[in-house]
Every structure is written in structure tokens, then in C-alpha cells.
Amino acid sequence: MTSASSPQLRRPGVLPVRPEHAGIEPYGAPQIDVPVLLNVNENPYPPGEAVVATLARDVAAAARGLNRYPDRDFLALREDLADYLATESGVRVAPQQLWAANGSNEVMLHLLQAFGGPGRTALSFAPTYSMYPEYARDTSTRWVTGRRADDFTLSPEAAAATVREQAPSVVLLASPNNPTGTALTPETVAAVCEAALEVPVPLEDGRTASAVVVVDEAYGEFRRAGTPSALELLESYPNLAVSRTMSKAFALAGARVGYLAAAPALVDALRVVRLPYHLSAVTQAVARAALAHSGELLAQVDALRAERDATVAWLRARRHRGAPLEVAPSDANFVLFGRFEDRRAVWQGLLDRGVLIRVVGPEGWLRVSIGTPQEMVAFKDALVEVAGL
């Protein structure tokens, strides 16, 4: 019995979930404990002891001030990022041109919050990163895709024509592209930026603005020699933003640090939509400590590039049921390959042998992240056994 004053226990009813979220499963790649994890494009090499020592020291220093809010504009981190990009890409940007957040995922969400929304459109070119439509959905932005060519390239003419046809407020270009690994040419990026300048995005006061172009270079440090960064186009296009992450090349997937470079006015628009003090003092300390060791951390990138190129060559030399395997050229730390009549059966066969890769991309294709030499041997041995290569 309950008294009149005590609350009644009631069966939970239907929650008022937004219609666009109803029945949707949360995003996430399988997290399975197996000996060889090659499914989420992680760097297989953990930070070295010197890096760990600096991280521990700097996080301890930050911990002593955790009773205070962090620097909400993280000026010191932005200065360090500017120095890093000048060294890595040869492009010097001002600290005011940089923005950071909890992974490049949050950077992308900030961009859609600032420039997307009801009545606006976000455009990309499929196949591409599966989170992009989720950013659009969560900001009530219409999502549309153009198509890449059969070899996953994107010509300047086709890209620009699609931008003019769809009239988006935001264009998302992944380069190198996930899941294909292909990089865009500077001509294609420039053509998209030019077309975006011509697209009139209506504003409530009757004026019009230009569309924003975002080049997602999450895997930029892995690009092959001679493949330029879109950072080189920043000075020419005030509507361009170039996003990076410290998850991959810096081996900091667990730290959740992403950032972008853009014109100061674009960065200021992101400052409006961010949550207060969104980048913790600990995150800032970790990122700055890692940047101080960028030479050591990026030393493994060359080894991963070499392992990637060797994996591409090995896969292209294999035959499946009489036909050569198809392998997409890669500027990233992963390789997309196929085609298989039943790719899930191949995936399961690898998993049964302790190797986890990813079912992603067009039908018939699989993606393998580049691991250590020992992990790649395990992958190749398992694939030969499962697929009869």
C-alpha cells in the first residue's frame, strides 16, 4: 500500500523521441576483444615512454588547477597547433584561424550547428564517412550526396556541377576519403570552393551568404608524397575550413582532440555554438604535450605508410575465384579492397581467426586498417585461408 502523499510507481510510457531519431541504433564499429584489431583505423603504436612522461607531468600540473574552469579559448593550444601545421604542411596560419574540440567529430558538429539547420542542406559525395549524415540529422539539416566515379575519384567538373545543382550551405569533402582512402586533387577542392562562392545561401535579413566548404583531413598526415593539403588553399577561399585530428597520426584516439583551420570569421561562428568550456584543461594539456613530441609521434607515420603501400601491392597481386582483387589507391592508414560475393562471410572468417576488420563501403568491399608488421602478416594469412587467394 502507498500513502496518498507518496509517489505512485508507474509503468514508463513512450518517450518523446524526435521523429528523426526514432528507432535508430547508436553509431559505432564493433568492439570485440580479439588479438588483431584492424577495424577502426587506429594507430597501432602507443605513445613512447618519453611522451607518456611529459603527458603525466603536464596532466598533473593541470590537475592542480581543476577547481578552476579551463581557458575557454585555449589560446596556447592554438599557438602550438599553428606551429605544427607550419612544419607539417608548410602553411602558416594565425592562432585565431584555429579551432579545436573533443575529436574532429565535435568539430564537424560545430560546423553543422553554425552553418546548417532547418531549411538548409549539407552535401557530400558517396561513398564517404558514415557519420556525416548523422551530423546533418542531429542539426535538422537536409542531407544529400553526389556520386564519386567507379574508381572513387571526383572530378572538378562533376563536383562543381553538383554543388550548383543542390545549393548547399555546407559541403563536406573527406580527403583522404573514408572508407576509400582516396585523396582529392587541389583542382577539385578549388572547383568546389568556387562553386560554393556562387551558391546563394539566403539569410533571414534578406541578404545571401556563400556556402562553406569543409575538407576533412583526418588522415592527412598519411598522404603520399606529392599529395598536397587543402591548407594551401585557405588564403584564397574565406569559405574553406580544413579539419584535422590527433587521433590517427598522433596515436591519441583516446584523448579525443580534433581541430580545424579557417578564416577568423568562420572560427568566430563556431565559438558561438560551442558549449562553455568545452575543451577541458586535461585535454588541452594532453594535446600540447603531444604536440611538443610531434617529431617522435609522427616517426611511425612513415612506417605505416610503407606498410600500407606494401599491403596494397600484396592485395593487388592476389586473385579471388579467378579474378584479381580490386584495391582502391590509399593516402590513409587503411585499405579498401574487394570484391567478394559474400563479404560478411569473409569478415566472419577473419574474425574466427582472431582478426577484426570492417564491413564498410560499397557492396562487396572490406576495409583493413594498417597495423604492425606482425598484425598485417596475421591478416594476410587469415585472408588467404578464408578467401582462398
Rank of each mutant, 00 (worst) to 15 (best):
P324Q: 01
G338M: 03
G322K: 04
A317G: 06
L336T: 05
A328D: 00
D309Q: 10
N333W: 03
P324S: 09
R308N: 01
A313L: 08
P324G: 03
V312M: 10
R321H: 13
A332Q: 06
R318C: 15
E341W: 13
S330A: 15
R321E: 15
R316D: 02
E326A: 15
A313E: 08
R321T: 13
P329C: 11
V312E: 13
D331Y: 04
N333F: 04
F340I: 06
D309M: 10
L325K: 02
A317N: 04
W314I: 10
R321A: 15
T311D: 07
V327F: 08
F340C: 12
W314M: 10
F340E: 07
G322F: 07
R308H: 01
A332L: 12
P329N: 03
L336G: 05
A328R: 11
H320P: 00
G338T: 01
R319A: 11
H320D: 01
V312C: 00
A332M: 11
R316V: 02
R308L: 10
N333L: 14
R316I: 12
F337E: 02
A328G: 03
H320K: 09
E341N: 05
G322C: 03
R308S: 07
A310K: 04
R318Q: 15
A328V: 13
V335G: 06
D331P: 02
V312F: 12
A317L: 05
V312L: 11
R321W: 00
D309T: 05
S330Y: 08
E341T: 13
P329D: 12
V312K: 02
E341M: 09
D309N: 12
A310W: 01
R316P: 00
E341P: 03
V335H: 09
V335C: 08
N333S: 10
N333A: 12
V335L: 08
R308T: 02
A323G: 05
L315T: 05
F337G: 04
A317D: 09
R318M: 15
L325E: 04
E341L: 15
A332K: 05
A313H: 00
T311M: 15
F337C: 03
F340N: 09
L325P: 02
S330V: 06
R316S: 14
A328C: 13
L315I: 09
R308D: 07
R318D: 14
G338F: 14
R319K: 12
F340A: 07
A323E: 14
A317E: 08
F334I: 12
A313F: 05
A323W: 03
R319N: 09
